[in-house]
């Protein structure tokens, strides 16, 4: 099936059924959560006081929940009313707005300490009508200029999106630069088809802590090797990620695939789905066989 942004405009594509499907899909939840954590890593907001963030295209609040958890106060905008309704049902903490980001924001200058956006920008790349104000460059220009003024100096905006071609990346970055942003594109796992993620890392002024240098993207081998690399070339939070992945490896906190916990979880899932002949749980479940010698 073709990409969702090519099928219909977002407020129509994310109708009631699609909004529910999107929010209840555990795989999407996981991907969104991972990308939000990574975006926060790259955002690197000031640590001394809780920041006030803007979530662009907050949707049903999957990313907002993570912002809540991390203790940020935030406001979110989205164009799909059905998604916002789901967000209301889920009782996220942030303020929600029904807004078309291609029409620009009305926030006063310097309102936010940072902005994140997960899987949104690609929706701005299609023209809905032939009217000059709905051409993608026009809408992008309006979006980036108003975003630039709504952010504090210094601060950052991290926008994850799914480009279909390098031309799109080129178009977006050039418009962002013209709007006054510094920064560039960070590509995580560039050699993987599935895990590849593109983050637009935009700086207002010096871009907050860590200088105005664009952080390095993650590579496949990183977590295993511990990648000896100059410190300031990476996002500040990355050490936390490494600590966590190390802890996972040592403490076996995560259910290892094929382990007893994993088997029990899977069997439980199959039973809940009503699958027939799921084997019983017993003391032998997931037990290792003794090596015979």
């Amino acid at each position: 099936m073709s990409r969702p942004e090519l099928q219909a405009p977002p407020e129509i594509y994310y109708g009631d059924t699609e909004a529910e499907k999107y929010t209840n899909n555990t795989r999407i939840q996981q991907i969104q959560a991972d990308m939000t954590y990574r975006a926060l890593e790259l955002l690197n907001p000031p640590q001394d006081e809780p920041a006030f963030l803007l979530d662009i295209g907050c949707g049903s609040g999957l990313s907002g929940e993570i912002l809540d958890e991390a203790g940020y106060i935030w406001a979110g905008v989205d164009i799909a009313p059905s998604m916002l309704e789901v967000a209301l049902e889920r009782e996220v903490e942030g303020d929600l707005f029904l807004q078309d980001i291609g029409q620009g924001f009305g926030f006063r200058p310097g309102s936010f300490d940072g902005a994140i956006s997960i899987s949104v920008l690609q929706w701005l790349l299609n023209a809905e009508t032939s009217h000059p104000t709905s051409s993608p460059p026009h809408r992008l220009t309006r979006f980036f200029t108003t975003l630039h003024s709504a952010l504090r100096n210094p601060s950052r905006a991290i926008l994850q999106f799914y480009p279909t071609s390098d031309d799109q990346v080129q178009l977006i970055t050039s418009i962002a630069q013209r709007a006054g942003f510094g920064g560039g594109v960070v590509v995580d796992y560039p050699n993987s088809k599935k895990a590849r993620k593109v983050f637009l890392c935009l700086f207002v002024g010096e871009g907050g802590g860590g200088g105005a240098q664009v952080p390095r993207g993650l590579l496949e081998g990183d977590e295993a090797v511990g990648a000896p690399e100059s410190e300031d070339a990476r996002a500040k939070f990355e050490r936390r990620r490494q600590r966590e992945s190390r802890r996972e490896r040592n403490g076996k906190q995560k259910a290892v695939k094929g382990g007893k916990d994993w088997i029990l979880r899977k069997k439980d899932l199959y039973r809940r789905r009503g699958k027939d002949d799921v084997p019983h749980d017993s003391k032998y479940t997931g037990r290792k066989r003794r090596a015979i010698f």
């Binding site: 309704e85 929600l96 078309d100 029409q103 009217h131 309006r142």
Partner: peptide, 15 residues
């Protein structure tokens, strides 16, 4: 409405 302000503009109000 329902706690969500509608910030959408009509076509002639878009920059």
């Amino acid at each position: 409405s329902n706690g969500i302000p509608n910030m959408l503009l009509a076509e002639h109000e878009i920059w």
